[in-house]
């Protein structure tokens, strides 16, 4: 459940914003991010017309990558 997609903020008007992605624009509410520093150009995650979180640039990763890397480094250091 909870179909949500990332969009970029194109303009802000109070707690409403227009977000866009790949040429599609949608009017969304920023009300749930009122305590976040947020601005035009930021990426947000939209669910049922509401931005529910700011998106950071991370990739999909697992802690195992980090662990494996550390283990490898450990092994190299060892």
């Amino acid at each position: 459940m909870c179909l949500a997609i990332p969009m970029q903020i194109a303009s802000i008007n109070g707690s409403r914003a227009v977000c866009s992605i790949k040429g599609i624009e949608r009017e969304v509410s920023l009300f749930l991010l009122q305590d976040e520093p947020i601005g035009i150009g930021d990426y947000v995650l939209i669910h049922v017309g509401y931005a529910i979180q700011k998106i950071s640039a991370e990739e999909a990763r697992s802690t195992w990558e980090l662990l494996d890397q550390m283990l490898t480094e450990d092994a190299q250091h060892a």
């Binding site: 995650l45 979180q53 195992w64």
Partner: peptide
Amino acid sequence: YSVLRQKLDGRIFLDNCYQQVVKPHGNPT
């Protein structure tokens, strides 16, 4: 992959494979 490795390696923890939006404490507002 993470849960399989956890099971195989016997190291059980809560992994976060969605760090782009899943932040500590979620969305406090």
